[in-house]
Simulated scan of single mutants.
Amino acid sequence: MSLVLKNVNKSFKEGDSTVNALKNVSLTVNAGDFIAIIGPSGSGKSTLLSIAGALLQPTSGDVLVNGTDIGKMKEKDLSSFRLTDVGFILQTSNLIPYLTVLDQLLLVRKMKSKVTEKDKEFAKSLLTSLGLGEKLNKFPNELSGGERQRVAIARAFVNDSHIILADEPTASLDSNRAFEVVKQIRKEVKGRNKAAVMVTHDERMLEFCDKVYRMEDGVLTLQK
């Protein structure tokens, strides 16, 4: 399983001018890779993540997931792709207040297909592996910030997605919880052999990543 961006460009119109958000970006993330992208606000990091997750189409260039060019998919197929092949972890956990921890995951499964007993057991095992086995029937307001973000991690993995995209997953956490969350993402990525990209401002988290890229003015370069 792999994510490959080849010579990707993305331009936006702003009034009479054109903003080049991504400039000839190329990136390969293989199964089991956990890479980070750092850089200042407005440098193009989130645009790259949105294109990798099929939320935006590139102006030019190719985006390949397991060899399939998602830029050539129809909208209906793209919706299915986003649900089954991509797991998103966002800055805030975005949990649904009236659903229990377990039901947060089962709702995502239900969007894909009918939920089976096997699906329920997989969701429970995911939550248990993230230290939430005792919290299955708790509601979001009964969890700490770190626990809510761990539920969001489990939700990203529950459809067994090939690609995991994390956008500032530690932004709302203190240092201890931030380290805990990134270590958990890495553990799940490695253990389940996923291709993962994390956008972050927090350079303390980079020690957990296999490679670090820097984005500046739409240009991506390998840092280590």
Rank of each mutant, 00 (worst) to 15 (best):
G71P: 00
V158M: 03
T84C: 05
G15L: 12
R192F: 12
D103Y: 08
Q149P: 05
F157A: 02
V158N: 01
S41I: 04
S60Q: 10
G191A: 14
S129T: 08
S50M: 09
V212F: 05
K74F: 02
K110S: 14
L48H: 08
V4I: 15
I153M: 03
N30Y: 02
Q184N: 15
S93V: 00
D69G: 12
R177W: 02
G32T: 03
V115S: 01
T84D: 11
L126Y: 02
R109C: 14
P40C: 08
S79Y: 03
L64S: 12
I185A: 03
L102W: 08
S26F: 09
M205F: 10
A52K: 04
D217H: 07
L90Y: 10
S144T: 12
D16A: 14
A196M: 13
L136R: 09
F208L: 13
Q91H: 13
G42P: 08
V8N: 04
S80W: 01
S2E: 11
K13A: 14
L90N: 00
N141Y: 14
L220R: 06
M1A: 13
V63A: 07
V212D: 09
Q149S: 03
V199S: 11
Q223C: 03
K6H: 06
E216A: 09
A154Q: 03
F88W: 12
I163T: 02
L27G: 13
A195D: 11
A171K: 06
I153D: 02
K120S: 08
E121R: 13
T28N: 15
I163L: 00
L27C: 12
K110A: 14
A171M: 07
E180H: 10
G145R: 02
R148K: 15
T128E: 15
R150F: 01
N94R: 01
G87V: 01
S113L: 00
V197Q: 07
Y213A: 09
E188P: 01
V19I: 14
G71T: 04
S129M: 02
E207K: 15
I89Y: 02
K112N: 08
A156S: 08
S80L: 12
K138D: 08
H201S: 10
